[in-house]
Amino acid sequence: MLNKKLWISILLRSRPHFLSTLFPKQKLSRVFSCSYHISEPRVYIRFEDHFIGNFGFPKKNFCSQVSTLSVSKCWNCNAVALSKPFLACESCRCVQPVDPSVDYFQIFGLKKIYGIDDTNLESKYKNWQKKLHPDLVHSKSEKEKEYAAEQSARVIDAYRTLQKPLLRAMYLLQMEGIHVDEEKTVSEPELLAEMMEFREAVEEAGSPQTLKQIQGQVQEKMEVWSKYFENAFKNRKFDDAISSTQRMTYYHRINEEIIKKL
């Protein structure tokens, strides 16, 4: 089995200047492998776990980290942070360095649960970008430009992750320190049979209407397993949660195939 870690991304990420050694000193074994066949290549996700692993933050109690944040000070004007999360200074508008202990949910002021209220996600995303986007610090110091590039990229990633149910589910598991091996082969015969059926149906579908119909069925399934994940995760039944993300991944891929044909 191929165990692909996107190490260039990681190396670049962990060393913004990447002029010195190009070898990772860190162990990459905990790198989260949620890979690129989920509609678009995902790379940033991996950095988080990588950072968390390296900087030795406890993997579970993200909340306790928040308390330490309250003493954060702006690197530029030394003002004490007034709000959480502290990504940009309120008094001098300076972009702050990435704090890996702030998770995606905290960035968007959300509870660390699967069933988030995503109605305000987009406007929150845009508000952050207005404070952090590298375009806005064009005339500032190299240091701040670098912070802006990193913070902005992280907010983009947080937004995309929370927006998509499957990525959100995987991120939650990852925060619990659980590795989801997406390349794991399906073993349940009942699921295998269903996979075959859907695949065949999509292949044979001649009209857009038929495809739309299949898509409806797939989305229904997706919702069922999405609910299942939510409950399993809430009750900390992680094995069940993992198996539902695997199913969600598979429905997601079928849906991608349908979209391709449509």
Partner: peptide
Amino acid sequence: ASNALRVYAGVGMPGVQHPVMPF
């Protein structure tokens, strides 16, 4: 952010954690 494109390439081998040479 300034739309500059950089391409990186590196080589690894299965089961080996480190790249076999600098990228």
